[in-house]
Deep mutational scan, measured.
Amino acid sequence: MQRVNMIMAESPGLITICLLGYLLSAECTVFLDHENANKILNRPKRYNSGKLEEFVQGNLERECMEEKCSFEEAREVFENTERTTEFWKQYVDGDQCESNPCLNGGSCKDDINSYECWCPFGFEGKNCELDVTCNIKNGRCEQFCKNSADNKVVCSCTEGYRLAENQKSCEPAVPFPCGRVSVSQTSKLTRAETVFPDVDYVNSTEAETILDNITQSTQSFNDFTRVVGGEDAKPGQFPWQVVLNGKVDAFCGGSIVNEKWIVTAAHCVETGVKITVVAGEHNIEETEHTEQKRNVIRIIPHHNYNAAINKYNHDIALLELDEPLVLNSYVTPICIADKEYTNIFLKFGSGYVSGWGRVFHKGRSALVLQYLRVPLVDRATCLRSTKFTIYNNMFCAGFHEGGRDSCQGDSGGPHVTEVEGTSFLTGIISWGEECAMKGKYGIYTKVSRYVNWIKEKTKLT
């Protein structure tokens, strides 16, 4: 034993070699072989497995989906700052455009905790909710729209109204504003409101030439003092309507412009014939205590009207009353817009006519005020429907199939267009061939041609 100890002390290297040989010859039971080890760690190889990531292109799944990435790591994937920024906006807080917040056709661009709407022409605001041009839906104005110097929408209202708090709607500024039905039992019968379409306001006024200088022999019209197929109006439903009495009662109609003036057809009036105007009328054979009678003290036909040349060209006249009318729910003026808007309103496509005229061709006159909704007829169809001249200051309205029309005794009465609950004068009943005849239409004086003249002559002093 002493000898062994001496050998170990003198030859430590020998001992180490012996131990190493023993270990190498022993069977290893701690580690699995290569094949079995792979069965336990069965993990798919990654895209760049075996390579240094710093030297390969980034992978979106590896960089940002398996674990949260930084902007720089995302930049490695896209290799483009702009594309990385677009991805980053949604990656950080989701897609803010998912709810489609942009209105009126706006395009949404996502941002971090926010979004941006790219608005089409005519709109602005956070969600493109603000109209900035009158060309689109009248700028959301209830009545009139004008573009300011910086191309912003400025709404306005006709006389007797003021802008509401929203700067879009119009509200009454006087007790009985024009064009409004205020009798409670008839307010439910107000005709369907007309909503502004998209309009090209630059070209809204037709490029028409008034044929002022045409000389033409007097034409022989049949029954051209021209509501057939209409309905009984309720008291106060058309408070701007008046009836004219002269040699015979209810020979023509008219509309209240203001307390002192009536507008009617020029062919209705004769110099030297006494005319009485009755406002607030409903049943011409009954006294309903809503009527107001006034005498006409002055007749002003349009300066281009000449019955000797043509009885229905420039067929418009103004009547001055001896005493002002007292405005109330049964006696209310009709609204008159400017030339541009009167023309736009007419193009809405349908209007209402009213009167006490004959209820059928050569038949009896109506006792109760009649009204009828009539569609506008395109000019080409209008011209083809008659052998008589249709001037540019006239328009056609009615039904091709016949059966409904204005008729004798309705002449001078109103053709009105309702705009968001307020009625505007767009025409004056003038003439036609018979009444409600198939293929024939009622012919009306186009008020847009005469609004400046009306307003100039009827100013209240």
Rank of each mutant, 00 (worst) to 15 (best):
R3T: 04
N5E: 07
N5W: 08
N5L: 12
I7R: 14
A9V: 05
L19Y: 04
L19P: 01
L23N: 00
A26I: 06
A26T: 12
F31G: 15
H34Q: 05
E35Y: 07
K39A: 08
K39R: 07
L41Q: 15
N42I: 09
R43H: 04
P44D: 11
S49T: 11
L52S: 11
E54T: 06
V56L: 04
Q57E: 05
K68C: 15
S70A: 14
F71E: 15
E76F: 15
E76S: 15
V77T: 11
F78P: 15
F78M: 13
N80E: 11
N80D: 10
E82R: 11
E82C: 08
E86S: 15
Q90L: 07
Y91G: 15
D93E: 04
N100W: 07
N100A: 05
P101L: 12
L103D: 13
G106C: 04
S107W: 05
C108T: 01
D110A: 08
D111E: 04
Y115V: 13
Y115S: 13
Y115F: 11
C117Y: 01
W118L: 12
W118Q: 05
F121R: 06
D131F: 06
I136P: 14
K137L: 12
K137W: 03
E142S: 13
C145P: 00
K146W: 08
N147G: 12
K152C: 05
V153T: 14
V153L: 06
C157W: 01
E159H: 04
E165H: 05
E165V: 08
E165R: 06
K168S: 05
S169I: 05
E171C: 05
E171F: 09
P172G: 05
V174E: 09
G179R: 01
S182L: 03
T190N: 07
E193G: 11
T194L: 04
T194R: 07
V199M: 07
D200H: 03
D200Q: 06
D200M: 03
N203G: 11
A207K: 09
T209H: 08
D212C: 13
T215V: 09
S217K: 03
S217L: 04
T218V: 08
S220D: 11
D223R: 11
V228P: 04
E231M: 09
F238N: 03
V242I: 05
V243A: 09
L244S: 00
L244A: 01
K247I: 10
K247V: 08
V248E: 11
A250Y: 06
F251P: 06
C252H: 00
C252A: 01
G254E: 00
S255P: 00
V257Y: 02
N258V: 00
K260Y: 04
I262E: 01
V263T: 02
A266E: 00
E270Y: 05
E270L: 11
T271M: 08
K274A: 05
I275G: 02
V278S: 07
H282L: 09
H282T: 12
N283W: 06
I284N: 09
E285T: 11
E286H: 10
E286P: 10
E286L: 10
E286V: 05
E288I: 09
T290V: 07
T290W: 09
K293N: 09
R298H: 08
P301S: 06
A307Q: 12
A308I: 04
N310F: 04
Y312A: 10
E320T: 01
V326D: 13
L327F: 15
S329M: 05
S329L: 04
I334A: 04
D338T: 12
K339D: 14
T342I: 02
F345M: 09
F348S: 15
G349A: 11
G351R: 01
Y352F: 12
Y352M: 03
V353Y: 07
G355E: 11
K362D: 14
R364T: 13
A366S: 03
A366M: 09
L367T: 15
L367R: 13
D378Q: 14
D378G: 10
A380M: 04
C382Y: 02
Y391T: 06
Y391P: 14
G402Y: 13
C407W: 14
C407M: 13
C407I: 07
C407V: 08
Q408I: 12
G412F: 14
G413F: 03
V416F: 09
E418A: 14
E418R: 07
E420M: 12
G421P: 02
G421M: 04
G421F: 03
S423K: 13
F424I: 00
G427L: 01
I428Y: 08
I428E: 00
E433M: 09
E434F: 13
C435T: 06
C435Q: 04
M437N: 04
K440V: 04
T445E: 02
T445V: 06
R449Y: 15
I454N: 01
K455Q: 12
K455Y: 04
K455A: 12
